[in-house]
Nucleic acid binder design. Structure first.
Length: 256
RNA sequence: UGACUGUCUCUUGGGU
């Protein structure tokens, strides 16, 4: 079981979920019973593939074999259900967990928000015993994803410790609602911008038909990653500058 | 000898 688990874990970690699942089933066909290590290795593979049915089967196996109270397994189950978008199942496991870390709380909040259950997200957020900056950011982004701009801003203003992600989230919210100038204010007053901040601005300009400004920021930014290049190409393409998009594509450095 | 985990920015498709 150790050997099987080591290989399954390896595949899962490298993003080869299909292989991880295949091996998971094959080990059982050969009569080897998975243990808690195996389950906490294979569940992330189900999560990556958003393979809810496989995840549920694994959950049944976990209950049959009595590993449902293992803390590693519980966290992996919550993570799997959230990433598969099955918030009801995730919530059930979460509610029965022996120990809920702030990571699991945050995963649940983000999951609810991404599934348009912003009220549920808020309920959990209000119940977190210890909120860190990531949890605050998740709730801010949760409002954003559901179009609640004002609530997001209120929460941002109440956040005790802001970081670059908090600001980036606000930039995205405002640009997505056509309020570029307000987004720029956040961009300018944040202590330091990272590449995602610049990318958000570029995308924001593009979505509001300000291609020239997008290009200006693209040229100004200190460092570009693959998202930057994609964002700028999309900026051109979506505004009917197909030739410019193609031209840019040809200029992307190989490492991207 | 083996295990899991959270928040922001781009791209494609699907759904509403």
């Amino acid at each position: 079981v150790v050997s099987w688990t080591a290989i399954i874990a390896g595949y899962a970690r490298e993003g080869h979920g299909e292989e991880a699942l295949t091996l998971f089933y094959r080990m059982q066909e050969t009569g080897v019973q998975p243990n808690q290590f195996t389950f906490s290795s294979v569940l992330p593979a189900c999560a990556d593939l958003a393979a809810l049915e496989h995840g549920k089967k694994a959950h049944e196996g976990i209950i049959r074999s009595g590993f449902q109270y293992d803390a590693f397994v519980e966290r992996a189950l919550v993570d799997m259900y959230v990433k598969c978008g099955s918030m009801e199942d995730g919530g059930n496991v979460f509610a029965r967990m022996s120990e809920r870390s702030v990571l699991s709380w945050t995963a649940m909040i983000a999951g609810y928000a991404q599934n348009e259950l912003v009220d549920e997200a808020l309920k959990l957020f209000q119940k977190i015993p210890e909120r860190d900056v990531v949890a605050w950011n998740a709730m801010i982004a949760g409002y954003a994803q559901n179009g609640h701009v004002d609530e997001a801003l209120k929460l941002f203003q109440k956040t005790p410790e802001l970081d670059v992600v908090s600001f980036n989230a606000m930039i995205a919210i405002y640009t997505q609602n056509g309020r570029i100038d307000e987004a720029m204010k956040f961009f300018q007053k944040m202590p330091e911008q990272n590449v995602a901040s610049w990318n958000a601005i570029i995308t924001g300009c593009a979505q509001n038909r300000r291609v020239d400004e997008a290009r200006k920021h693209f040229q100004e930014m200190p460092a570009r990653d693959v998202v930057s290049w994609n964002a700028m190409m999309a900026a051109y393409a979506q505004n009917k500058y197909v030739n410019e998009a193609l031209h840019l594509f040809q200029k992307i450095p190989e490492r991207n």
